[in-house]
Design a protein around this nucleic acid. Structure first.
Lengths: 242, 242
DNA sequence: CAGTGGTCTAGACCACGGT
DNA sequence: CCGTGGTCTAGACCACTGG
């Protein structure tokens, strides 16, 4: 393994890309050349080995650090992460998109719409001031005329004043909010729930059937905007990869 | 808005960080200075505005593109993403960690262990050759002596030959695999399922109770390694944020 | 204190893709 | 074609932190 072998007359060598370095490092980790917890060479050493600038190595390793493959510390160097905390990315989309991607016909229906005072549980959950006005909506999303998702939503009127002027007859609140209201942070919660009377009716399943549910609270700069509970048809599966 | 105002005698100005630029851009998007679909200035223009190198602007915008906030095209410029495809990151960890983070006592128990031929459904799902040997495991994970998760797993013996020598009496297969076997890709599937007889017994819930389930198939370079079905105790919630 | 990653710069060349 | 982003370089200074 003499380093000499790889040396070329210099001049115009094809530049080494950060992707090559990243992939090579991943390879050495996967094949246990660098086992879990091992200390990698410094950026300077790797740059010398690969014959490129330190910035290039930096970019490669930074990307791996973002993915949780390695951990980096000043003066401490770069180590193979002891717990390969793989991250799965969940793309958060609108129901209509999901349905249309299945090549199914999308249909939306508003079930109810009412202005109410923020109930205590919602105040606890979102931080909307108790007694503040919220718009409460219930709606159904169908795929090929079969029930797909029941959506129950509460919108903080104080945060979205002009929501009062929207009747939501023809557009779902998720799409409307996405287009009209900026938001910055969200919290999501997945669970399995039994079909209660109302849910069972709307989703056309026997009472007690197991349903996949997703709840999401949204803020715009610490200011609560909306809370939504989406319950899917029986048998729904959420998929992802990494 | 005269650009002159911001000019200093040059010399040693505090360098503008990519984070400042990124945050400022996020701000202008959130406040609709640049509405959905709008075309942003070029990197060169932004670099001039912020008084920094193009590379700095590039890093800021590249990060926003990775998050799906903007879309970038050569010659097409940078645009505010029309569909704010926010991405939630799911950290995939080991059950023991999850339980210990709840400050609960973790207990593991092996339920069954047997070598079998790969059944057709598993072959279809993972690509393990039909008839190939797989190790079938069932185990329970408890938190403070209460059922937490039932794990059913199949391991491709051809991909992990030395798995045959492990009895899994004291260590869970998830941790063992994580430590012993490299893997590169995975597919995850979440759903709500009813508690069947066996599941109901192990998780101590009435038959038919809605349970949160996560299935994961793992490959190492297109080579199937393992398939696992994890069913959680009643009321379990998976949380994340973005 | 000294080594390591974190970041910025000024310049360069390239690749893609709209005009 | 030629403008825009994508990337690499060589060098520099800084910030954190382990010994």
């Amino acid at each position: 393994m003499t380093a000499q072998d790889d040396e070329t007359p210099a001049a115009h060598r094809k530049p080494v890309g950060f992707q090559e370095i990243r992939d090579e490092v991943i390879d050495r980790i996967q094949t246990r050349v660098w086992p879990q917890g091992a200390l990698l060479p410094t950026e300077l050493e790797l740059a010398a080995e690969f014959g490129c600038a330190r910035a290039t190595v930096n970019r490669a390793l930074r990307e791996l650090a973002e993915q949780g493959i390695v951990t980096r510390k000043r003066k401490g160097g770069t180590r193979v992460a002891s717990t390969p905390v793989k991250q799965a990315k969940l793309a958060i989309t609108v129901v209509r998109q999901t349905i249309e991607e299945m090549n199914a016909a999308y249909r939306y229906a508003l079930v109810s719409r009412s202005l109410v005072d923020c109930p205590p549980w919602l105040q606890a959950r979102t931080g909307i001031p108790e007694g503040g006005q919220v718009l409460h909506l219930q709606c159904m999303h169908h795929a090929d005329n079969r029930p797909f998702q029941f959506e129950e939503r509460w919108i903080n009127v104080a945060a979205v004043p002009h929501v009062a002027g929207e009747n939501f007859q023809d557009i779902g609140p998720n799409e409307w909010l996405l287009a009209e209201v900026p938001f910055s942070d969200a919290e999501i919660c997945f669970s399995a729930v039994p079909a209660t009377g109302t849910l069972a009716d709307f989703l056309a399943v026997p009472a007690g059937a197991p349903l996949f549910q997703m709840e999401r609270t949204t803020w715009f700069r610490k200011n609560p905007v909306t809370f939504v509970r989406m319950t899917f048809h029986q048998g729904y599966q959420m998929r992802t990869a990494y």
